[in-house]
Design a protein around this nucleic acid. Sequence first.
DNA 1: CATTAATGGTTTGGGAGCCTACGATATGCC
DNA 2: GGCATATCGTAGGCTCCCAAACCATTAATG
Lengths: 169, 169
Amino acid sequence: MTSTGEPKAHNRAQNPRRRPQVSLGLLRNFIGFHLRRAQDASFESFAHRVGAADFGPGHFAALSVIRANPDINQVNLSRATGRDKSTLTPVIRNLVKHGFVQRHRSRTDSRAYCLNLTPKGEHHLQKLALHAEAHDRRLDQIVGEIHKGLLIHLLERIVTELEHDRRRR
Amino acid sequence: MTSTGEPKAHNRAQNPRRRPQVSLGLLRNFIGFHLRRAQDASFESFAHRVGAADFGPGHFAALSVIRANPDINQVNLSRATGRDKSTLTPVIRNLVKHGFVQRHRSRTDSRAYCLNLTPKGEHHLQKLALHAEAHDRRLDQIVGEIHKGLLIHLLERIVTELEHDRRRR
DNA sequence: CATTAATGGTTTGGGAGCCTACGATATGCC
DNA sequence: GGCATATCGTAGGCTCCCAAACCATTAATG
């Protein structure tokens, strides 16, 4: 009898306002559930490091990929970061407005834009990268240096395999 | 020169409409990024298995925890599933409306509700669990039986450690 | 060429989630 | 008992995301 909704009065005196012990039931062994929890926690931690004044992780991902792929267009950027292209529209508008990204039409395909970092964007990304590295060092510390490679490998396998499933439908 | 935005005409003939090779840059080694991708992929795969007709993973998580913790209240449920209590309000309303969950006021705390599965809810959860187990078996297959325990352990460590950091702020 | 199909980008609509504020009740401390 | 504080549940507002519809342009096919 766990009685998580009906607290017993007698043990509140021994240990006031303690968190009740809640069982996860079936969820306990489900990878998907733990993925979600870990992702939420990681996101929150990163956002806190960067500070609400700056931008969210989405901006960091976009800047990072744009930097690594000069003249990338928005569809390829969206595929690389795993966000829908329509999600990227306001993000990029913001980055351009702040002068971090410069955008010009492709000369070989007049539908597409070419995205590039401005010097200001480079500088901003470097600043963000400091936070991101600190964040990642903390994660390294948690999972252990030895396991980091394995963890990333497993996560990548999950992504590629499930997307492969999806394509086969 | 990767040229992701300016496709060269001459290699399109050799290999038409292939996906351009995009570098992740700094993101490559960031655990947080891969967590997000894996979570997205897992979520999408699960949702597809269950089918849009039924409910999403959030409902499955709620039902699973309610089943494992009779008379649990909404705050404890929200903490166990990692969702804000206000997020749970419409979810629970839905579950009650469909007759999966029964809700009554606690007799020792008239603010709180006591949540329990109805027989119909039990049956529905069992049906969902079949999908969830198939989904999880696929994930087991991807990460390998050997690594599953380690993966879940690492994900749990990330959650507990980062939440510990948060509490120390 | 002309017509059809595919692609890049934006807009719109809806869902899910968080945060804040609030009313109602409970608890702690005089 | 009486007041301050904490807690349970809900409502409103906001952000983020995806999916579908759409326009403009490009590629494929006859």
